[in-house]
Design a protein around this nucleic acid. Structure first.
Length: 544
DNA sequence: CCAGTGTTGAGCTG
DNA sequence: CAGCTCAACACTGG
């Protein structure tokens, strides 16, 4: 039935991530010696079409900011393909069904797509590969999203992913392509062939997908696409001093006019920018300066972190959950939908935390340390809510949300894996203050507090009523009172984590659901003896 | 068993 | 603003 495909002469280039022309081995292979070449992107309605029941504008899986970023990336890709004599063929439906239908109908002997380690693509690609091999179609699926092949690192380490950065560095060494030129430009592409009865469309607009118009200030200032990525890369590396001296923890999380980092993460996520090309550009800069920073804090160090998390995620079953995840501490997190909603909707009453959550919603991006602050606050620092809940919110709202990196960082921040110093808690009051004593960041993202004097802006509930009136912001009416007292909540969290760690150690990590239930009851019992945190929450003793 | 280490804590001192 | 103390975790390598 499908034998017609096997006799074809063309190739199908399936874009998913890797939305770029430069350093794209799958595209290069597809175009080599094949005519025609069908460049395809499949719009999965589940990912793209509006879900009115979601907590923010967007689909069931993605917030509108990321959907828009993706569409912009596709428009840019289509434009670049057109310049090379081709175009992007946009199809709609369940991706494996659509691709298999195309393979059946078109003149294809090669199917090319970038290898993807995410579980979603592992399952999807299996279906498509199975069909292709049964139909005699060659499949070319190179690793080009990361610097290294995660499977190779895991194999080198005896079947397990390295779980510390230093051991990862040792195993990884220098990338094999470090000093060989990458293919960064194509002069032309073979024409697109007859698409038969398959329904092809242009890249849709958000409006065509069914989204209303949104206020401009509700949307991310970052535009998607390879062109934008390369422009941003060029700007970032043009300042050689800055590149050479880059040290991650030293950036200012409250900088928003000019962010303290490159903001290339969304472009790396969608593959608008090749991490390998970025790496080579950085090495080039290093060669031309006397002295430069090194991993883990340098810019190259950041790319290696990305590979570190990709490798850990690929080699760890159930990486995105606590249960059944061997590297994840089993912790009796609280279930509190009210507190979760307060965090998600930027009404915890801590301006530093809430401003960050507003930036997340509006921009789909915040500084790395800002992410740390809100993640710590939600989980081990204050609210003791499950990291999976926070992960879901980030996964939806971030324009750079990346399965491996997002889950890895939530494991890290909640002290569930990789990092265990749970007594180091970010203060929702003083951490931001040391970077931005005037509270400009808060004033920008929480304009209700714009007239609050700087003495009170990080703790507005301590402002005398006269000051609150003068600032046109009454705490408890115009802006919420804090949902917890940080001092007592963080102490409670530390106590709970100490107990949970002890249990994990005692049971050698084999903590059952019943064990957790028992511990939860014990912790609640202790709490009630100490006069009860529920009452404390409504009327914290140290908040006037 | 022990010392050293770990991308990014807070608060204080000089 | 660097450096120290505080309190203190897991993991690594010898």
């Amino acid at each position: 039935m499908s034998s017609r495909s096997a006799t074809g002469s063309g190739s199908l280039m399936w874009f998913r991530k890797g939305l770029r022309i430069h350093d794209n081995p799958a595209l290069e292979y597809a175009s080599r010696g094949s005519t025609p070449v069908y460049p395809v992107f499949v719009i999965d309605p589940h990912y793209m079409e509006p879900d009115p029941t979601a907590f923010s504008p967007g689909s069931a899986l993605a917030g509108l900011n990321r959907i828009r970023f993706l569409l912009e990336s596709l428009v840019d890709l289509d434009l670049s393909l057109k310049k090379l004599g081709s175009r992007l063929l946009v199809l709609k439906g369940e991706p494996s069904e659509v691709v298999i239908r195309c393979l059946k109908q078109w003149d294809v002997k090669k199917l090319c797509f970038e290898y993807d380690t995410d579980p979603y693509y592992q399952a999807l690609d299996m279906k498509v590969k199975n069909y292709a091999s049964s139909a005699g179609i060659e499949v070319f699926s190179p690793v080009s999203h990361t610097l290294f092949n995660p499977a190779y690192i895991i194999q080198k380490n005896g079947g397990k992913p390295p779980l510390s950065y230093q051991s990862f560095l040792k195993l990884a060494g220098q990338p094999s392509w470090a000093s060989s030129p990458l293919s960064v430009s194509l002069s032309s592409l073979p024409p697109v062939g007859d698409t038969g009865s398959c329904e092809i469309s242009e890249v849709p607009t958000v409006r065509e997908l069914g989204y209303e118009d949104y206020e401009q200030d509700e949307l991310t200032p970052f535009r998607g696409g390879e062109s934008e990525a390369l422009k941003r890369l060029k700007e970032s590396i043009s300042n050689k001093e800055w590149v050479a001296n880059f040290e991650k923890p030293k950036g200012d999380p409250s900088a928003y006019v000019k962010p303290a980092t490159t903001v290339l993460s969304p472009y790396l996520k969608f593959g608008c920018l090749s991490s390998r090309y970025f790496y080579q550009c950085l090495i080039d800069v290093y060669k031309n300066v006397k002295k430069h920073t090194a991993p883990p804090v340098s810019l190259v160090g950041q790319l290696l972190w990305r590979d570190f998390f990709y490798t850990a995620a690929f080699g760890t079953p159930n990486f995105d959950q606590m249960k059944g995840n061997k590297i994840c501490k089993q912790i009796p997190w609280n279930n509190d939908d009210e507190l979760l909603a307060a965090w998600r909707e930027a009404r915890t009453g801590f301006p530093w935390i809430d401003a960050i959550m507003v930036q997340l919603r509006k921009w789909g991006w915040m500084h790395h340390l800002a992410r740390h602050c809100v993640a710590c606050f939600l989980t081990r620092g204050d609210l003791f809510i499950h990291w999976e809940k926070g992960r879901d919110v980030f996964e939806r709202l971030l324009i750079d949300s990346d399965w491996a990196i997002n889950n890895g960082n939530w494991l890290w921040l909640s002290c569930s894996s990789f990092f265990y110093q749970y007594h180091r808690i970010y203060s929702p009051i003083s951490f931001g203050k040391k970077y931005d004593p005037n509270g400009n960041y808060i004033r920008h993202f929480l304009p209700i507090l714009k007239d609050m004097p700087k003495e009170y802006i990080y703790e507005p509930w301590t402002a005398p009523l006269s000051i609150q009136k003068k600032s046109k912001c009454i705490i408890g009416i115009d802006y919420p009172k804090p949902v917890v007292s940080h001092d007592s909540a963080s102490k409670e969290c530390k106590r709970k984590l100490a107990e949970a760690y002890a249990l994990n150690q005692k049971l050698n990590g084999q903590v059952s659901e019943d064990d957790l239930k028992t511990l939860r009851r014990k912790l609640e019992g202790d709490e009630n003896q100490e006069s009860g945190s529920k009452r404390q929450r409504q009327n914290p003793s140290d908040l006037s």
